[in-house]
Design a protein around this nucleic acid. Structure first.
Length: 259
DNA sequence: ATCTATTCCTGGCTGC
DNA sequence: TGCAGCCAGGAATAGA
């Protein structure tokens, strides 16, 4: 099977949570096997001893974090770059954690191991408000480049590299702009909300030609206007899209439409 | 307090 | 053709 890369940002995690919640709600965890200890590096509690016997009450999301509420405590999952949750699949070379449930086996696969699984919500508590809630424009007024502010999960949580670039394009704001005005901040937050909701409708963005067994995965990559479009013509004005580095991340923008 | 650079990790791509 | 070297990026960390 060809692996697909979904670059899990808020819309991708939301899509996964919507699939996961009805399948996990009410189930019990039978046993847990950690094949790669690095994945549980942030956990203060050994998940292999604390999880067996727990009942799953709910699955929800904050930013890019998946939160599995249990009858006692919760489990927090971050997919990093390449994390995947797979039901009833044979373990492969990148299977890092195996959850045996009362009616299924759930695998956590992750090639690059940037993802993390921990007992408790310590890291979630350090996050800013979820990017799909009502956001305060004044929080964007900082000295750092506005794109770096968008990526700062302590300011707003859930926006990653793809949707930061896409929202800045839609708002007509250059990624390197600093101390942006109130009207521009409001415009940018409206663009963030638009792009995230549209992406959720498309089940997120998938990078590569992979189609799963149901024939559906994210398709929002077809709507990308700047991300991964370096040197291609701007969809609005035809100017070649430029790629620079902002906040240590590859950043795509239209030099004419974004000021 | 805020900002910036570096680190982790590996598949896939580039170029010699 | 083969392989070294670089690139991608979310979040933690160290340093400014």
């Amino acid at each position: 099977m060809t692996a697909y890369i979904c670059m899990p940002e808020l819309p991708e995690v939301e899509t996964i949570v919507r699939e996961l919640a009805p399948r996990l709600r009410g189930r019990h965890i039978v046993s847990v096997e950690v094949l790669q200890p690095r994945i549980t590096r942030h956990s203060k509690t050994d998940i292999t001893t604390v999880l067996p016997g727990r009942r799953i009450e709910e699955v929800r999301r904050h930013g890019k974090f998946i939160i599995v509420d249990l009858d006692q405590g919760c489990l927090t999952i971050h997919l990093g770059m390449t994390g995947q949750l797979l039901f009833d699949t044979a373990p492969g070379p990148y299977t890092r954690v195996i959850f045996v449930l009362d009616d299924a086996v759930l695998l956590y696969d992750d090639t690059r191991m940037f993802g993390a699984i921990e007992f408790g919500a310590a890291r979630v508590e350090r996050l800013g408000p979820d990017a799909l809630t009502q956001l305060a424009p004044d929080k964007l007024k900082r000295k750092a480049p506005v794109k770096a502010v968008l990526l700062n999960q302590a300011v707003f949580s859930g926006i990653g590299n793809i949707y930061a670039d896409e929202a800045l394009f839609r708002a007509g704001i250059k990624p390197t702009a600093r101390n942006i005005s109130r009207p521009r901040a409001e415009k940018l937050l409206a663009a963030v909300d638009d792009v995230l909701r549209e992406a959720i409708e498309h089940r997120g963005s998938s990078v590569s030609d992979y189609v799963d067994t149901e024939g559906r995965r994210g398709s929002f990559q077809q709507q990308h206007r700047v991300y991964a479009r370096e040197k291609l013509p701007c969809v609005v004005c035809g100017t070649p899209i430029r790629k620079i580095v902002v906040g240590g991340r590859g950043t795509h923008y239209c030099p004419k439409c974004q000021r």
